[in-house]
Amino acid sequence: MAEVRIKAEKRTRFGKGAARKIRREHKVPAVLYGHGTETRHLTLPGHDLMIALRTPNVLIRLEGDGINEIALPKGVQRDPIKGFLEHVDLLLVKRGERVTVELPVVVTGEPVSDGVLDQQMVTVSIEAEATHIPQNVEVNVDGFEIGHAVHASDLKLPTGATLLAEPDALVLHILPAQGGEAPAEGEGEGEAAAAEAAAE
Protein backbone atom coordinates (compact mmCIF):
# COMPACT_ATOMS: atom_id res chain seq x y z
CA MET A 1 0.00 0.00 0.00
CA ALA A 2 1.36 3.42 -0.92
CA GLU A 3 1.92 5.96 1.82
CA VAL A 4 -0.10 9.17 1.96
CA ARG A 5 2.02 12.10 3.11
CA ILE A 6 0.31 14.52 5.48
CA LYS A 7 1.77 17.58 7.12
CA ALA A 8 1.65 17.37 10.92
CA GLU A 9 1.97 20.07 13.56
CA LYS A 10 2.58 19.56 17.25
CA ARG A 11 -0.49 20.56 19.24
CA THR A 12 -0.15 22.62 22.38
CA ARG A 13 -3.79 23.70 22.76
CA PHE A 14 -6.08 21.29 24.63
CA GLY A 15 -9.67 21.09 25.81
CA LYS A 16 -13.01 21.43 24.03
CA GLY A 17 -12.59 25.12 23.30
CA ALA A 18 -9.17 24.58 21.74
CA ALA A 19 -10.49 21.65 19.69
CA ARG A 20 -13.35 23.74 18.32
CA LYS A 21 -10.93 26.48 17.35
CA ILE A 22 -8.71 23.94 15.55
CA ARG A 23 -11.73 22.65 13.59
CA ARG A 24 -12.76 26.19 12.63
CA GLU A 25 -9.33 26.43 11.02
CA HIS A 26 -10.28 23.33 8.94
CA LYS A 27 -7.83 21.18 10.86
CA VAL A 28 -8.28 18.03 12.95
CA PRO A 29 -6.92 17.24 16.44
CA ALA A 30 -5.10 13.90 16.54
CA VAL A 31 -3.01 11.76 18.87
CA LEU A 32 -0.10 9.51 17.88
CA TYR A 33 0.79 6.58 20.14
CA GLY A 34 2.45 3.16 20.09
CA HIS A 35 5.71 1.29 20.68
CA GLY A 36 5.81 2.45 24.27
CA THR A 37 6.41 6.06 23.23
CA GLU A 38 4.82 9.02 24.92
CA THR A 39 1.53 10.03 23.33
CA ARG A 40 1.98 12.95 20.96
CA HIS A 41 -0.77 15.48 20.30
CA LEU A 42 -0.96 16.68 16.70
CA THR A 43 -2.95 18.92 14.40
CA LEU A 44 -3.56 17.68 10.84
CA PRO A 45 -5.06 19.37 7.73
CA GLY A 46 -8.72 18.37 7.59
CA HIS A 47 -9.15 18.14 3.80
CA ASP A 48 -6.00 16.06 3.23
CA LEU A 49 -6.87 13.75 6.10
CA MET A 50 -10.45 13.22 4.93
CA ILE A 51 -9.25 12.24 1.44
CA ALA A 52 -6.67 9.84 2.92
CA LEU A 53 -9.26 8.14 5.14
CA ARG A 54 -11.34 7.18 2.11
CA THR A 55 -8.86 4.30 1.70
CA PRO A 56 -9.38 1.54 4.30
CA ASN A 57 -6.33 1.01 6.55
CA VAL A 58 -4.48 3.82 4.81
CA LEU A 59 -0.82 4.21 5.73
CA ILE A 60 -0.08 7.81 6.67
CA ARG A 61 3.38 9.37 6.57
CA LEU A 62 3.39 12.23 9.07
CA GLU A 63 5.91 14.93 8.24
CA GLY A 64 6.81 18.35 9.55
CA ASP A 65 7.46 20.13 12.85
CA GLY A 66 10.20 17.63 13.73
CA ILE A 67 7.91 14.65 13.01
CA ASN A 68 8.67 11.85 10.52
CA GLU A 69 6.60 8.78 11.35
CA ILE A 70 4.37 6.15 9.73
CA ALA A 71 0.95 5.58 11.29
CA LEU A 72 -2.33 3.71 10.86
CA PRO A 73 -5.69 5.29 11.77
CA LYS A 74 -7.15 3.28 14.66
CA GLY A 75 -9.98 5.52 15.80
CA VAL A 76 -11.89 8.13 13.80
CA GLN A 77 -14.53 10.37 15.38
CA ARG A 78 -16.95 12.21 13.11
CA ASP A 79 -19.71 14.67 13.78
CA PRO A 80 -22.87 12.48 13.86
CA ILE A 81 -24.90 15.02 11.85
CA LYS A 82 -22.52 16.84 9.51
CA GLY A 83 -19.97 14.05 9.19
CA PHE A 84 -16.85 16.19 9.45
CA LEU A 85 -13.77 14.81 11.26
CA GLU A 86 -13.63 15.63 14.95
CA HIS A 87 -10.63 13.60 16.14
CA VAL A 88 -8.31 10.83 14.94
CA ASP A 89 -6.22 8.29 16.86
CA LEU A 90 -3.09 7.17 15.01
CA LEU A 91 -1.05 4.06 15.78
CA LEU A 92 2.69 4.34 15.24
CA VAL A 93 4.00 1.49 13.04
CA LYS A 94 7.40 0.39 11.74
CA ARG A 95 8.40 -1.32 8.51
CA GLY A 96 8.43 -5.09 8.92
CA GLU A 97 6.03 -4.96 11.86
CA ARG A 98 2.88 -7.06 11.67
CA VAL A 99 -0.40 -5.43 12.66
CA THR A 100 -4.01 -6.50 13.09
CA VAL A 101 -6.57 -4.79 10.83
CA GLU A 102 -10.14 -5.22 9.62
CA LEU A 103 -10.42 -5.63 5.84
CA PRO A 104 -13.66 -4.86 3.97
CA VAL A 105 -15.20 -7.92 2.27
CA VAL A 106 -16.07 -6.83 -1.27
CA VAL A 107 -18.58 -8.99 -3.17
CA THR A 108 -18.54 -9.10 -6.97
CA GLY A 109 -20.64 -11.00 -9.50
CA GLU A 110 -24.23 -12.24 -9.28
CA PRO A 111 -25.64 -15.54 -7.96
CA VAL A 112 -28.23 -17.55 -9.91
CA SER A 113 -31.32 -15.57 -10.87
CA ASP A 114 -33.53 -17.16 -8.18
CA GLY A 115 -30.93 -16.72 -5.42
CA VAL A 116 -30.45 -13.84 -2.99
CA LEU A 117 -27.10 -12.92 -1.46
CA ASP A 118 -27.07 -12.79 2.34
CA GLN A 119 -23.76 -11.28 3.52
CA GLN A 120 -23.05 -11.93 7.20
CA MET A 121 -19.56 -10.39 7.44
CA VAL A 122 -18.70 -7.01 5.92
CA THR A 123 -15.16 -7.04 7.34
CA VAL A 124 -12.69 -9.76 8.28
CA SER A 125 -9.86 -9.58 10.80
CA ILE A 126 -6.37 -10.34 9.48
CA GLU A 127 -2.74 -9.84 10.39
CA ALA A 128 -0.38 -8.35 7.82
CA GLU A 129 2.89 -6.48 7.49
CA ALA A 130 2.25 -2.84 8.35
CA THR A 131 3.45 -1.43 5.03
CA HIS A 132 1.77 -4.13 2.90
CA ILE A 133 -1.85 -4.08 4.06
CA PRO A 134 -4.31 -5.06 1.32
CA GLN A 135 -7.29 -2.76 0.76
CA ASN A 136 -9.92 -5.49 0.82
CA VAL A 137 -10.78 -9.15 0.35
CA GLU A 138 -12.82 -9.94 -2.74
CA VAL A 139 -15.40 -12.72 -3.10
CA ASN A 140 -16.84 -13.48 -6.54
CA VAL A 141 -20.31 -15.05 -6.25
CA ASP A 142 -20.96 -15.29 -9.99
CA GLY A 143 -23.24 -18.28 -10.65
CA PHE A 144 -23.42 -19.41 -7.02
CA GLU A 145 -26.39 -21.74 -6.48
CA ILE A 146 -28.92 -21.57 -3.65
CA GLY A 147 -27.38 -22.98 -0.49
CA HIS A 148 -23.81 -22.12 -1.50
CA ALA A 149 -21.90 -20.70 1.47
CA VAL A 150 -18.54 -19.00 1.91
CA HIS A 151 -16.75 -19.24 5.26
CA ALA A 152 -13.77 -17.25 6.50
CA SER A 153 -11.43 -20.14 5.71
CA ASP A 154 -12.55 -19.97 2.05
CA LEU A 155 -11.36 -16.38 1.60
CA LYS A 156 -8.35 -15.90 -0.65
CA LEU A 157 -6.06 -13.64 1.33
CA PRO A 158 -3.14 -11.79 -0.24
CA THR A 159 0.34 -13.27 0.17
CA GLY A 160 1.69 -12.64 3.65
CA ALA A 161 -1.71 -12.05 5.27
CA THR A 162 -2.93 -14.34 8.08
CA LEU A 163 -6.60 -14.93 8.90
CA LEU A 164 -7.53 -14.08 12.50
CA ALA A 165 -11.28 -14.64 12.24
CA GLU A 166 -12.77 -18.03 13.17
CA PRO A 167 -12.24 -20.29 10.11
CA ASP A 168 -15.84 -21.55 10.19
CA ALA A 169 -17.37 -18.07 10.53
CA LEU A 170 -20.03 -17.55 7.84
CA VAL A 171 -19.10 -14.75 5.44
CA LEU A 172 -22.06 -15.09 3.06
CA HIS A 173 -24.52 -17.58 1.62
CA ILE A 174 -27.16 -17.72 -1.09
CA LEU A 175 -30.84 -17.95 -0.10
CA PRO A 176 -33.95 -18.58 -2.20
CA ALA A 177 -35.45 -15.43 -3.69
CA GLN A 178 -38.75 -15.94 -1.83
CA GLY A 179 -36.97 -15.83 1.52
CA GLY A 180 -37.57 -19.47 2.36
CA GLU A 181 -34.82 -21.89 3.30
CA ALA A 182 -33.17 -24.12 0.76
CA PRO A 183 -34.35 -27.75 1.12
CA ALA A 184 -32.02 -29.92 3.14
CA GLU A 185 -30.13 -32.63 1.31
CA GLY A 186 -32.42 -35.61 0.65
CA GLU A 187 -35.52 -33.78 1.88
CA GLY A 188 -37.11 -33.61 -1.56
CA GLU A 189 -36.45 -37.33 -2.13
CA GLY A 190 -38.28 -38.23 1.11
CA GLU A 191 -41.34 -36.19 0.14
CA ALA A 192 -41.43 -37.81 -3.28
CA ALA A 193 -41.24 -41.30 -1.80
CA ALA A 194 -44.09 -40.52 0.62
CA ALA A 195 -46.25 -39.28 -2.24
CA GLU A 196 -45.61 -42.45 -4.23
CA ALA A 197 -46.52 -44.62 -1.22
CA ALA A 198 -49.79 -42.75 -0.71
CA ALA A 199 -50.72 -43.20 -4.36
CA GLU A 200 -50.23 -47.02 -4.24
Rank of each mutant, 00 (worst) to 15 (best):
E110D: 15
I146Q: 02
P73R: 14
V122N: 04
E86D: 10
H132S: 13
H132Q: 09
T159S: 14
L91K: 12
D168L: 13
Q119N: 05
T131A: 06
G83T: 07
P111D: 04
L49R: 02
G147W: 02
A169Y: 06
G66Q: 00
V106G: 11
T162F: 00
L163P: 10
L172Y: 00
E63K: 09
R98C: 08
L92F: 14
H151V: 10
I51K: 02
D168M: 12
P56W: 08
H173S: 07
A177V: 15
D118M: 06
P176Q: 14
V93H: 11
N136T: 09
E138N: 11
H87M: 06
A152W: 04
V139S: 01
E145Q: 13
P73F: 11
I133F: 07
V101D: 02
L90H: 07
V76G: 05
E86K: 08
V171A: 00
L53T: 00
V58E: 05
L117M: 11
A165N: 02
R98Y: 14
I174Y: 09
I67Q: 11
G115C: 10
L164C: 04
H132N: 04
D48T: 00
H148A: 04
P80Q: 00
E129C: 07
Q77G: 01
G147Y: 05
A169N: 03
A177M: 15
A52Q: 01
T159D: 14
L59M: 11
D89A: 10
N57F: 03
L164W: 11
G75Y: 07
P167F: 05
G96D: 12
V88K: 09
V116W: 11
E102W: 01
Q120P: 01
A71F: 08
G160V: 14
E97Y: 12
L90I: 11
V171I: 04
